[in-house]
């Protein structure tokens, strides 16, 4: 299949830009609540839940920075993330973030019914797929009103099916 290039994604100009993180392990320096082990475990958990081969590590890290922001606002949420890390680390003689993929997947399956799992899974979906770099990767263009909408930018440009009759 020939790949056409992905169009450019935009965040609404009224919203803050994505957080800038250092590329190395220093990224944990921006965190308010999580320590490095909790943060790195959650990054590995997010990638195990949603293992997008071609997404860079930084999008998963930004997702965990968003978790940290919630945890800083809500102590009960902070406790939920801590419980999650304890649960997944306690299941095997090796810390979760050092496990091979099949053990990580089985470990997550084993705790699917818990509130801590639900918190991590739902919150990962909430923030990972709200990241503009992920939008760009999967072809979602995002905000458009500041560019005049899509009326002149392809709202009806699909050309691989028959054109419906005018006025249908």
């Amino acid at each position: 299949m020939t790949e056409t290039p992905m169009p450019t994604a935009y965040k609404d100009p009224k919203l803050p830009p994505p957080v800038e993180l250092p590329e190395g392990p220093d990224w944990v320096g921006v965190l308010k609540v999580f320590d490095a082990h909790v943060a790195e475990t959650l990054v590995v958990a997010a990638r195990t839940l949603y293992p997008h081969q071609d997404l860079p590590e930084r999008v998963y890290r930004r997702t965990v920075v968003a978790f940290d922001g919630l945890a800083a606002k809500m102590p009960a949420v902070a406790q939920g993330f801590a419980e999650f890390v304890d649960l997944v680390d306690g299941a095997m003689p090796v810390p979760f973030r050092e496990l091979s993929e099949s053990y990580r997947v089985n470990g997550l399956k084993a705790i699917e019914g818990t509130a801590a799992f639900r918190l991590v899974q739902r919150t990962t979906v909430r923030f990972l797929y709200d990241d503009i770099e992920v939008w760009q990767a999967f072809g979602y263009e995002g905000a458009s009103a500041h560019l005049g909408g899509y009326v002149d930018r392809g709202f009806n440009d699909l050309d691989w099916l028959p054109e419906p009759p005018p006025g249908i």
Binding site: L49, Y50, E112, Q121, R122, R126, L128, Y129, F138, Y140
Partner: peptide
């Protein structure tokens, strides 16, 4: 959009 498609496709679905 991508954010809510992901959230509502089948909540709880992962992997």
């Amino acid at each position: 959009g991508l954010p809510t498609t992901a959230a509502f496709l089948d909540p709880g679905w992962w992997g």
